[in-house]
Structures are given as structure tokens and as C-alpha cells.
């Protein structure tokens, strides 16, 4: 079921991005004054890179097995996934500190660094990240019974799927933005 849901939703989202990507990217208004955007400091860039890279690895390790081979994580993939999970959690938290203001939905849109779609995606990823982290963290403590563990796994999987879709939209709209 989850496998089918993943495949269908990913295809739909990719199609939406392809079709409506430019619109979602929110192009700047013609003749409008475009503010000069400087480069991010190295540390911040590194944190962002770590977050996106770990997110992609998490998606790869978490979804490829589940969608292509239809089985859960096993072997070294688990170790990579868990390691990347920690990196993702930490880098997402730090990035949230650094960029929360930049991704502020109340901030400038069309002439800013990020489109509204990207901002929404970032906050969706942050919320899902929280779900991802807590669903796994709580299962590591002697709190949840078997049913709770299954529920935590479901929360983890759904959060991951939503984060995956948000990532696709973020990446898709970012590439279409002038």
C-alpha cells in the first residue's frame, strides 16, 4: 500500500513540478528592482549542503529498498540511514536557526532568494523532520509497546514521504527560478 502510494505521489508531484514549475517558482515582476543577493557564509553553506545531502541519502536508502525491492531497511543500508538521520537532524536544526528568517513566509517573495513554494517546502520539511526524528527517537526508549512501535513506524514513513514530496517541489521550483 505504502509502496503504491509512494510511487503514485512521487509521479504526480514530478508531473506537477514539470507542468507548473515556473508558476510555482514565482518569477520576479518585470522592471522590479532586484535586490543584490550575496553568497552565504561558508559554515551556513556547509550546513545547508549537509542537510540536503543527508536528506537525499535518507530518501535513497529509505525509499529505494521499500519501493524497488519491497522490503524494509536491512544490513549496511540501515547503518547509513541511521548515520544520515543524525546528520540530517542536526543540520536541519542548525539550518532552521540560520535560515528561519530567510524562509519566513511573511518576508519578500518574488524578489527574494526563495519563492513562497520553497519557503513552504522548507517548513514542511522542518515539520516532517521533527516527526521523523521523534518517531524514531521515541521508539529507542522503553515507552512504546508493539502497537506504538508500529504507529511510530507509520508516522516515520508518512513524514518521510511528505518530506520527499516537499524536496521534489523545492528542487523543481528552485531549478525553474531565474
Amino acid at each position: 500500500m505504502f509502496r503504491a502510494l509512494t510511487i503514485v505521489s512521487v509521479i504526480v508531484v514530478i508531473a506537477v513540478v514539470v507542468k507548473f514549475g515556473r508558476r510555482l517558482a514565482g518569477q520576479p515582476v518585470k522592471n522590479a528592482a532586484v535586490p543584490k543577493l550575496g553568497r552565504y557564509p561558508l559554515l551556513e553553506a556547509l550546513i545547508a549542503f549537509a542537510m540536503w545531502a543527508s536528506l537525499i541519502l535518507l530518501i535513497g536508502t529509505g525509499f529505494l529498498g521499500a519501493t524497488l525491492w519491497g522490503h524494509a531497511l536491512c544490513g549496511f543500508t540501515t547503518l547509513i540511514h541511521v548515520g544520515c538521520g543524525a546528520l540530517f537532524g542536526v543540520s536541519l536544526a542548525l539550518l532552521a536557526v540560520f535560515r528561519a528568517e530567510a524562509y519566513n513566509l511573511a518576508g519578500p517573495d518574488t524578489c527574494g532568494r526563495f519563492s513562497t513554494a520553497q519557503k513552504v517546502c522548507f517548513w514542511v520539511i522542518a515539520i516532517c523532520g521533527l516527526g521523523l526524528i521523534f518517531s524514531m527517537l521515541i521508539s529507542m526508549f522503553r515507552i512504546l509497546g508493539t502497537d506504538g512501535q508500529h504507529l511510530a513506524t507509520q508516522v516515520h514513513k508518512l513524514s518521510a514521504l511528505i518530506a520527499l514530496l516537499a524536496t521534489i517541489i523545492y528542487a523543481g521550483t528552485a531549478s525553474k527560478r531565474d
Binding site: V90, A93, A96, A106, W123, A126, I127, L130, I133, L137
Partner: peptide, 22 residues
Amino acid sequence: KAVIFGAACLIAAILALYALLA
């Protein structure tokens, strides 16, 4: 566990902050 718990708390705090701002 401690590190990711800390990270999760930080994310939760920021989300809460912006939720409050909203």
C-alpha cells in the same frame, strides 16, 4: 539519542517560535 533529541528540541522551538509569530 542525546544529540538528535537536542536537534529535535531546537527544531521544535523554532517551529513554535514561528508558529507563535504567525
